[in-house]
């Protein structure tokens, strides 16, 4: 017996077309969708959406998609080796099969924020779902105003997508500021929290949207600091991460009160989140 409708728990098949070390314990996986259904599903997806990646035999886990379809058909994920599924993914090689279920969730309102200045705050692997935001701006530069990127990590070896900084910096009217919580030998850049850097840079709030992603504690303090600089909750966006097992609102895992990260998000305005009964901190 087969189901009449597509089974939302069934992954599309893919193959690892590229694997790259991008930071300590973090790899970039490039997935080539191998079947027509998977190719169709991932022919269009938006910055901020996520997908479940299967390492068959170990399980599946959700990850923010870190690529844009405009830049190619390979679907990219930046994944830190932290648990069973992610460590198994890290043991795979180019050519190995994987499964991908998605794209899922909502996305950054890139259309709605056209014409505005943008401040991007990325903490650690939280930079992964922000990279498609940066790429969308770069590929449609005239659509957005001044762009300030603040990029941070606990230590220099955990900074992601550093090899793209030159490309980002070569873009007109776009600044990139980098900081680490703890420096190390040879590090000549900023040392300090991303919130301290944010206060130093002190971006104008006028016609500006702030977009942040990082660990829950960073998002919490980023919002506080943005507030201190005059940003109101209607002009700050974030994307949240939670443990989840379905991505379609059934498994119960990622609720924040009556809201779900998977189906109501993962992208939220700060003004939405303040009304939620429960946070993720």
């Amino acid at each position: 017996m087969s189901s009449a409708e597509a089974n939302p728990m069934r992954p599309y098949l893919g193959r690892l077309a590229g694997i790259e070390d991008i930071a300590a314990g973090i790899k970039l996986f490039q997935v080539e969708m191998t079947g027509p259904e998977g190719q169709a599903a991932f022919s269009e997806y938006k910055p901020g959406q996520f997908a479940f990646v299967s390492a068959f035999g170990a399980g599946e886990a959700p990850f923010g998609i870190t690529s844009t379809p405009r830049r190619g058909s390979l679907v990219e994920f930046a994944i830190a080796a932290l648990g069973h599924v992610t460590n198994t993914l890290h043991s795979l090689e180019v050519g190995d099969p994987v499964g991908v279920r998605g794209p899922l969730g909502n996305w950054f309102p890139m259309e709605e924020i056209k014409g505005r200045d943008i401040v991007i705050l990325g903490g650690g692997i939280g930079g992964a779902p922000l990279r498609p935001v940066v790429h969308t701006i770069l590929d449609n530069r005239v659509d957005y105003g001044h762009v300030t990127i603040l990029w941070a990590a606990r230590s220099p070896d955990l900074l992601v997508f550093t090899e793209e900084f030159d490309d980002w910096r070569a873009t007109p009217d776009l600044d990139v500021h980098v900081t680490v919580d703890r420096g190390e030998e040879g590090w000549t850049g900023n040392v300090g929290l991303i919130t301290q850097l944010l206060e130093q840079v002190n971006p104008s709030t006028e016609n500006t949207v702030a977009i942040t992603c990082g660990p829950p504690i960073m998002i919490h303090f980023a919002f506080l600091t943005l507030g201190k600089l005059g940003f109101n909750p209607e002009q700050s966006l974030t994307t949240l991460e939670a443990r989840m097992h379905c991505g379609i609102g059934k498994c119960g895992r990622c609720n924040m009160g009556e809201k779900f990260v998977c189906t109501d998000g993962p992208v939220f305005w700060q003004s939405d989140i303040v009304g939620f009964l429960e946070g993720l901190l």
Partner: peptide, 27 residues
């Protein structure tokens, strides 16, 4: 109560073939 977890279990392995079950369990 309907919360669930999803996991893989390897049920057979050998001779170049691996059989896996993706299971859903109550949580």
């Amino acid at each position: 109560c309907r919360c669930f977890d999803v996991a893989d279990r390897v049920v057979e392995q050998g001779a170049g073939i691996t059989r896996i079950e993706r299971i859903r369990v109550w949580d």
